[in-house]
Amino acid sequence: MRYAAVQNVAGPPSGRHVIRFPPGTRVDSASIDGSTADIDLSNDVTQQSGTFGENGEFKALVYTLTAIPGIDAVQITIAGRRLQTLPHGNLELDTPLRRSDW
C-alpha cells in the first residue's frame, strides 16, 4: 500500500501529460487502520494552483489505494495534521475520502 501511494504521488516519468501532485510532495507515512489507508503528505501538497490539479491528484490517489483489496477509504493528513480542508484549496479532507466522493 505504501508503495502504491508513493508511486501515485510521484507520478509517471516526466514528459507525460498527466495531472501531478505539486513538485516535491512526498508520502511521509502510510499505514492501514481497518479498511482505511492513512496517508500523511508533506506540506508541499498545499502549493496548489487550481481545482483541476487538486481534484485530479486526490481522485487518482484514492482510486489507486481503494483498488487494493480491503481498502475502501483514504484519510489524508498533511505534515502530520488532520485538516478540515486542503490549504489554499477547495477540497474537504476532515473525513476519509472514498470513490463515491467522485
Binding site: N55, T85, N90, L91, L97
Partner: peptide, 8 residues
C-alpha cells in the same frame, strides 16, 4: 461537469 468533494 465534474463531481468532487469541494467544501462549498
Amino acid at each position: 461537469i465534474v463531481k468532487s468533494r469541494l467544501y462549498v
